[in-house]
């Protein structure tokens, strides 16, 4: 078992990551937006724009609808808390995170589900046509995306014989180099899930305000000021968490081992590079694809789900 100093070290790692993710998440969103701007031949608002937006929103007076209930008011805090926790337990810099024993991959999917249910319920709380539309579509997208994500994570769990994220990453990163065909399927499915769950093109459009195309935006239409700021921040955290999961499962190499101080700087630099690449990739993907009709989305996600199941099957069949 761990001795005391190792445990303290692990706690330090954990707290560092906790702070790091919450501060860095908007930067990632800013980076994706900036890449998109470049690709679309615009100069863009700069990578720091999300921070400015958050700062502005926090300063404003919150306005909520007359018939908003307590559920509407606590939802931003719950969503933010869930996303923060989720982003904090995914090993991206170092594998020993004491918090990650609290929730394994199945619980991680559960945390996302909890946040989603609250935000969908809050969207229905005011009783506007857009709110319910958004809630309905969000649940429609997620009922296929969630099992797909679970299957992707299962494939990784099968390979590493554990549902604990640090153990999965350890198995994938530190053991001898191996190619896993099943992970190829899982990776493809995961990309689709990432796009869908983070309200990205082709499933949703993060910058739209057209009624026919909104999903996530329709749900949060009634929020303003600090509530909106928290939700936006939570969205950034969610994107960060998803990209972290992607990195942890498919590109874990270079992560610092247990109690390895020296590996830390390299791990951080590598992580930065991976995040930059992933963000740029996401931007490219969004720029080259077109938004789908809403009823194509279930088909798209159904494909992801089946691919993930296939990945799991391939693992069973090839035995690797």
């Amino acid at each position: 078992m761990m001795n005391n100093s190792e445990f303290i070290l692990a706690i330090v790692f954990q707290l560092t990551q906790l702070l790091l993710v919450v501060l860095a998440a908007p930067l990632l969103t800013g980076w994706v937006n900036q890449c998109q701007a470049w690709l679309q031949n615009r100069s863009g608002a700069g990578m720091l724009q999300p921070y400015r937006v958050l700062h502005k929103l926090f300063h404003k007076d919150a306005v909520i609808a007359h018939n908003a209930s307590w559920l509407f008011r606590i939802t931003p805090y719950i969503v933010f808390g869930c996303m923060w926790l989720a982003a904090a337990i995914i090993p991206i810099i170092a594998v020993d995170l004491p918090f990650s024993g609290v929730a394994d991959v199945i619980a991680l999917v559960g945390v996302f589900a909890l946040a989603r249910m609250f935000i969908a319920l809050a969207a229905m709380d005011i009783g506007t046509s857009f709110g319910t539309l958004g809630a309905r579509r969000e649940m429609l997208v997620s009922f296929l995306a969630e099992p797909a994500l679970l299957m992707v994570l299962f494939t990784a769990s099968m390979i590493s014989h554990s549902t604990q994220l640090p153990r999965i990453v350890e198995a994938l990163a530190h053991h001898q180099f191996a190619l896993y065909p099943s992970l190829a399927f899982a990776a493809l499915a995961f990309v689709i899930v990432l796009l869908a769950e983070n309200a990205r093109i082709p499933v949703d459009n993060p910058s739209t305000h057209l009624e026919l195309t909104m999903i996530h935006e329709a749900m949060i239409l009634e929020y303003s000021a600090r509530h909106l700021a928290l939700i936006e921040w939570a969205s950034s955290l969610k994107l960060f968490a998803y990209i972290s999961i992607g990195i942890a499962l498919f590109l874990p190499h270079g992560i610092a081992e247990v109690g390895n101080w020296a590996g830390l700087p390299l791990a951080i630099v590598l992580l930065l590079l991976k995040l930059l690449a992933a963000g740029a990739g996401l931007a490219v993907l969004e720029v080259v694809t077109a938004k789908m009709r809403i009823f194509r989305a279930p088909e798209f996600l159904g494909t992801a789900f089946l691919l993930a199941v296939l990945g799991l099957l391939i693992h069973f069949l090839l035995g690797t």
């Binding site: 926090f58 919150a62 306005v63 609808a65 018939n67 506007t128 046509s129 857009f130 009634e222």
Partner: peptide
Amino acid sequence: LYHGRLRRGPAWDCGF
């Protein structure tokens, strides 16, 4: 850090 001010108003609903 900021404040806890809250106002109530009619629902926004994209201005409909």
